[in-house]
């Protein structure tokens, strides 16, 4: 039986962890690439978007300007009140600033990309249509006709 007892000497060999760093690095790279450092540094308005189910996904995110509409957050309420405001980039804006902001964004894009530009309105579900309409009118004036109403995915029953 000596033949067989020899085998047991080693016990189970330890699993090599040499490839562990490789696996972890792979995951790391994936998350590094997938991470988008938030496109606007600071949100100055509260946005709780309404729900809709007839939605499309935005693919070319680099061709989209975002306009936020909502109540100023607590920190700014003393200064700006609680009436809904527009935020473009990192600052509060008025409806009349929408057009120039779009043109500025457009001027940074290549010629063939210009017809594909889109403006995404991220508005709080409780803001009035007046302010949205003002934005739309300004966008029409500068020929920014492709717009997108950002919504959550879900039935409209959630909008009650």
């Amino acid at each position: 039986m000596g033949k067989f007892s020899k085998k047991k000497e080693g016990g189970t060999p330890a699993i090599s962890t040499a490839s562990l760093p490789d696996i972890v690095f792979m995951l790391l790279f994936f998350f590094m690439v997938a991470t988008v450092m938030r496109e606007s540094g600071e949100k100055k308005v509260q946005v709780n978007m309404p729900s809709a189910d007839q939605v499309k996904k935005i693919e070319k995110k680099n061709l989209v300007t975002y306009i936020y509409v909502g109540k100023p957050i607590k920190k700014y309420q003393a200064k700006f009140g609680t009436a809904p405001r527009i935020q473009i980039d990192d600052a509060f804006a008025d409806a009349k600033d929408v057009g120039p902001a779009f043109l500025k964004f457009k001027s940074t894009k290549r010629e063939e990309e210009k017809p594909l530009l889109m403006t995404s309105i991220k508005a709080d579900k409780d803001v009035g249509m007046g302010i949205i309409n003002d934005i739309k009118e300004e966008l029409r004036k500068v020929n920014a006709l492709k717009i997108n109403y950002s919504t959550k995915k879900g039935g409209v029953e959630a909008n009650k």
Partner: peptide, 8 residues
Amino acid sequence: NYGIRRKL
């Protein structure tokens, strides 16, 4: 990023 498309 989902939303309703609209052409003005």
